[in-house]
Amino acid sequence: MQRKIEQNPGLATDLLLHAEMGTVSHDDRYIVMRTPEAPEYFFGNRLVLQRRPSQEDRAQLESDFAALVGVPPAIVHRSFAWPEDGTDEIGLDAFVAHGYAASVSSVLVSQRDALRPTATNNAVHVRLFDSDRDWADWVRISLSEMPDPTCEVSRRCIDYQRSAYRRLIDKQVGNWWGAFIDGELVGSLGLFFFGHIGRFQSIVTREDHRNKGVCRTLLTEVVKRAAGMRDRLVIVADESYHALRMYEALGFARQARIGSVCYAPATSPVDSVA
């Protein structure tokens, strides 16, 4: 199983990041991700599987999730991910019929110095986050990306992510960068390093500034200033995400896929910021 994960740079860097933010443990069947201080953080409390599950696996997976990750009232969701082989359509209708949300993400990789020249927005100023105000603005933008920005669970998940990312930065694992226009935060991303691999995290553009070259400018500048001699840069994005083509135009190529399913009570939002 470990070999399959290592061959998927998206899952491999997910686990490296999570090992710094929570706990990661292994057995013969699963990799167990837990975030004890944030039990409502769906994508930080999950089982990583060896392969795509079948409908016949569901009951056993739910039982194992309860034993290895947790049960209500602390853990009210069930979340599973796996390295997805091939490029075919993924049939998870049986899980969806039982209340699960299913998604497939593309793992995009750019080799060193492979980013292509692109038009940027001269009005965008790119710099490191350097104040509590920057992070407060990040919280507001991140909440707006959630299915229910007013939900208290959404607020707690975003607050946890802010604290976890700031701890990673304090440990000098990486940094958080912002795109500013006239002093206002309009986009941001994290970039964290593990040896010769750089992993982008939570790339977001404020909704009222999309299609203005903000993300292109931010990515281009951050790679130029921070990526250094890293051999590979990794982005993971949902295959329905509007920015996938832009990443490819910049020189990122789809190298792998990640499948996932998550069940959560109707009152709890599946966190969309990864």
Rank of each mutant, 00 (worst) to 15 (best):
I197M: 11
K224Y: 08
A237L: 02
I258N: 03
V234C: 04
G190K: 02
M229L: 12
D208Y: 01
L250G: 02
C215V: 07
G213H: 01
F252V: 00
C262K: 12
F252R: 02
V204I: 14
L219F: 02
A227H: 14
Y247C: 07
V236R: 06
M246D: 12
E239R: 14
A227D: 07
S188K: 07
T217G: 05
V204M: 06
M229K: 13
A226P: 00
E221T: 11
H209W: 12
G195H: 05
K224H: 10
D231T: 10
V204P: 01
E239I: 08
Q255N: 11
R199N: 09
V204Y: 02
A266G: 15
R254Q: 12
V222L: 10
R254E: 11
H242N: 10
T267F: 14
C262W: 04
M246N: 07
E239W: 00
Y263W: 15
F252Q: 00
A243S: 15
G195S: 04
D271E: 14
Q201A: 08
A227F: 07
A266S: 15
V261T: 09
L250H: 05
S272G: 15
T217N: 06
R225F: 03
F194G: 10
P265Y: 03
V214K: 01
V234A: 07
I258L: 12
F193E: 06
D231Q: 12
D231N: 15
R206M: 01
A274P: 00
G259N: 11
L218T: 05
V261M: 10
L191Y: 11
D238Q: 12
A249N: 14
R245F: 12
P265T: 07
I258G: 00
A243W: 09
Y241G: 01
R254C: 07
L244H: 13
R257I: 04
M246G: 10
A253R: 04
I197Y: 06
R210Y: 10
G251I: 01
L233A: 03
Q255G: 06
I197F: 08
L189C: 13
